[in-house]
């Protein structure tokens, strides 16, 4: 019951959505829209689980006075701050001038932008290790990355300013992105496509069961 029912649901729903592609009549022609809506609603319920889990873990840390409990308290307070304000604002919570918008502009954006921007430093240090031209393949990777990077900043065209239009670093970067990069990307995309097809078949047929867990 605990394993068979989810497997049955997966198979029936999966086959229904495959059939839907070939039947352009009601109700199959509405299923894409329905699925998108259902998925959105389930997402909203899933975030409740996630948020409760975060609060529970943080609260346990605070109550037990475990290492770093002060930071756990900050997590709870900042979560409560933006959530209470956002829920109290009503459905127009995003309008400019609202308290939620103030928190979004002055806290969420600076934090997320800075968090992602420091990746530039880690990427630079990783590239120093990875980009050493140890063999032909690494050298090709290094050259492609160099031309794309230098072609996307003004100094690239300043350096190659003496070259005719169409042969500068920016043009080379565009050419790399348009042709060899596209070719490799297509091979990867086709590979991913075939992989998704086989994995989906395994899921629908019940061969792949990771999503229903291992317990009873």
């Amino acid at each position: 019951m605990r394993r068979e029912v989810p497997l049955l649901i997966t198979a029936v729903v999966g086959i229904t959505f495959v059939v839907k592609y070939f039947v352009p009549h009601f109700p199959f022609n509405r299923m894409d829209a329905w699925f998108a809506d259902w998925f959105s609603i389930v997402q909203a319920c899933a975030i409740v689980l996630g948020a409760l889990n975060l609060l529970k873990l943080s609260a346990l840390k605070v109550i037990g006075q475990k290492s770093g409990w002060g930071y756990a308290l900050v997590i709870i307070l900042s979560f409560m701050l933006i959530t209470v304000i956002g829920l109290a604002e009503g459905s127009d919570y995003r309008d400019p001038g609202t308290s939620f918008d103030w928190l979004y502009v002055n806290m969420f954006i600076p934090l997320s932008a800075t968090m992602f921007s420091i990746l530039a430093f880690f990427v630079a240090s990783a590239s120093y290790r990875a980009f050493r031209a140890r063999n032909y393949e690494a050298t090709v990777l290094l050259i492609a990355a160099f031309f794309v990077m230098i072609g996307r900043v003004p100094v690239g065209d300043v350096i190659t300013g003496f070259m005719p239009e169409g042969y500068r670093f920016s043009d080379l970067a565009i050419w790399i992105m348009d042709y060899p990069q596209t070719a490799g990307q297509r091979a990867i995309m086709i590979g991913i496509g075939l992989g998704v097809v086989s994995t989906s078949l395994r899921v629908i047929l019940g061969i792949e069961r990771a999503h229903i867990g291992t317990g009873d």
Partner: peptide, 24 residues
């Protein structure tokens, strides 16, 4: 810690108003 709390709260509010309220 502020980032974790603010991000979780932000997505909670967005999904509540846009997905649950706005759709359902």
């Amino acid at each position: 810690a502020i980032f974790v709390g603010i991000s979780a709260g932000y997505w909670f509010v967005v999904l509540f108003w846009d997905n649950f309220h706005g759709k359902f």
